[in-house]
Nucleic acid binder design. Structure first.
Lengths: 344, 344
DNA sequence: ATGAAAGCGCTAACAC
DNA sequence: GTGTTAGCGCTTTCAT
């Protein structure tokens, strides 16, 4: 383990025959410094030869910039989306030469505060405050002591820049996919929680119907307690009606999974007897269902990227950036669960 | 943004009327220092009053210990397991006052090397080198310049401490679950990849049969190209035989999902007509399938924890720790997909 | 075109 | 019991 000896800027200076100042100048490409090309070359050569690597800690201490950003999330283990957000964030950070410091609070507000403190103690340049599902949050006040951007979340008052998925637009596109295939009776198997997603997707559902001049029929929207089991019972009920819908818009892919089970139970096949579109594009479900599920993708990767890019801008501008609230589009992912309605 | 002014150890010293040395001693509880209780108190009070927080960068620079550890993984977005490993690692790190710096290489070896360098430049205390599925890896040589432990991976030569799931034991337990319910013809729907998981689980399958004195029948193991579609065709074939198995051990939950689909196709129900046990406990599948899937959990959280604890030990002992290769047990998660075989 | 020297905030010999 | 002082490895002002 451990290299022979780790070379510092002084070793480079000595070896190249210049002062540390000059070495620092050339290695950091400090602008507006008149330095002989030959000098630059000799210094670079020496640095390479010695395998010099700047100590980022020392740099950070001196320059007040650590090139590391904190990522606090309420959860990370139990949601398949965390990975995408983190990945997007990490990719954007890496592009800018920064690293992510990751922390999960498991929803414990006190712990969250401790974690943010730990991050600030480490002099992170800023913090991404992430939620694993779109919601309204109230971050610890301490978050105001830093640059911060909200990911998949918003505060009541909108004080931080934030990015969330476009629930309304996504739902509208989902239902339009069904409408454009000729469906006119379209059920909505939704969730009982009162969160931005349920509200937004219902609005989108209605908007799409309106665009196509289809009257909204309240009895066609059925809410249940999330997950496949809820989707199963919602769909079972909806599909058992004499005037059953020919298309089903499901609040999540998990609910769609339940809808598939209900269809099987009723000996109906997808999409011949009933077309289904989901939401989330949880690939493990959407690609493994038979037939593959047409669904709206949640733009987690893009949101993660947007969040750190915005944070970085904010940091680089010394906090003089306007607060912006970004809506991120949910693209339609076509697979095989939508066709024309049965002839009847 | 930004607090009024951030207090340093000097402010505390001044305010308390002692030297920075003494402040450092009491705030860090340095052992073997004789300091008056009254002094301790006054210093603590001053620190609290001023809201003093040590600058971890400066501490790290001086003490050569940053209390941050790097986590490099080949992937993070597209696997549902990443979250669990990261969470376990982060939890263990947090317990020890350390933070995780996260990096994903997307399988790009060159990038991986760059990332490890970036981590070392930031003076991380050590590095977790993680794979998102159990495999044999060859990490960049640079990894030897630090303390490192392998997570869900091993090298050919076993030079780093490592932790991987006990594939053999898990598979044996899975098949024994079937055997103990009375099944004697048990199919194995596996994957075609040649990786530790396929090899180990086949061994476990055979061991369990042997324990129960059931002869191994090669025609009962059917390999396909992963995912639900493969499981569907494997199971369809296995279950269509005249001497069809009454129990199915599936290489993954995704394959089990395909097996459910095949059972439905054949109008067989789970578990009445066929009992199924999976592997992985991908909850999004295992809990949402109907009926719930009995499966073997992959101990990702525990492995993540073990990895950083072991790394931390290694760091604290200055690298004089023996290399250890840990097998982590895969617990059985009983749900509703196993019962006694049909009377026939 | 280059360098001396101060100092980022802290720890740890070593004095007293 | 407590304080002085010398750095950790680097950036940056200011001289020259």
């Amino acid at each position: 383990m451990m290299q022979a000896r780790v070379m510092g800027i002084r070793d480079v200076a000595e070896s190249a025959g210049f002062s540390v100042t000059t070495v620092s100048h050339v290695l950091n490409d400090v602008p507006g410094k008149r330095i002989a090309d030959s000098t630059r070359e000799r210094i670079r050569e020496a640095a390479d030869r010695l395998g010099y690597r700047p100590n980022r800690l020392a740099q950070g201490l001196r320059s007040q910039r650590t090139h590391s950003i904190g990522f606090v999330s309420d959860n990370i283990a139990t949601t398949p989306f965390a990975g995408q957000m983190i990945h997007g964030a990490q990719a954007a950070a890496a592009d800018a030469g920064s690293l992510l410091m990751l922390l999960s609070s498991d929803g414990d507000a006190e712990l969250e505060d401790v974690e943010i403190r730990a991050l600030i103690d480490r002099q992170v340049d800023g913090i991404i405050y992430a939620s694993m599902f779109h919601r309204v949050v109230t971050p610890p006040v301490r978050l105001r002591n830093t640059s911060a951007v909200l990911l998949d979340a918003r505060t009541e008052t909108g004080e931080f820049s934030s990015v969330v998925p476009d629930e309304v637009g996504g739902a509208r596109a989902a239902v339009e996919e069904l409408l454009s295939h000729g469906h006119r009776r379209i059920g909505f198997a939704t969730d009982t929680s009162d969160i931005p997603a349920t509200r937004g997707r219902l609005i989108g559902y209605r908007q799409a119907l309106e665009v196509y001049g289809v009257a909204f029929d309240e009895s066609l929207v059925h809410a249940s307690g999330g997950e496949a089991a809820g989707g199963f019972s919602s769909a079972l009920e909806l599909l058992s009606r004499p005037d059953r819908p020919t298309g089903l818009f499901c609040f999540t892919d998990r609910i769609a999974m339940g809808a598939y089970q209900a269809a099987a139970e009723l000996n109906m096949s997808v999409p011949e007897d009933v077309s289904i579109v989901g939401f989330d594009d949880q690939e493990i479900i959407s690609t493994n269902l038979r037939p593959g599920l047409t669904t709206m993708a949640l733009p987690h990767y893009e949101m993660g990227k947007w969040a750190v890019n915005t944070l970085l801008d904010q940091i680089n501008n010394g906090g003089n950036t306007p607060v912006v609230h970004q809506l991120s589009a949910c693209p339609l992912v076509r697979r095989a669960s939508v066709s024309s309605p049965p002839r009847a």
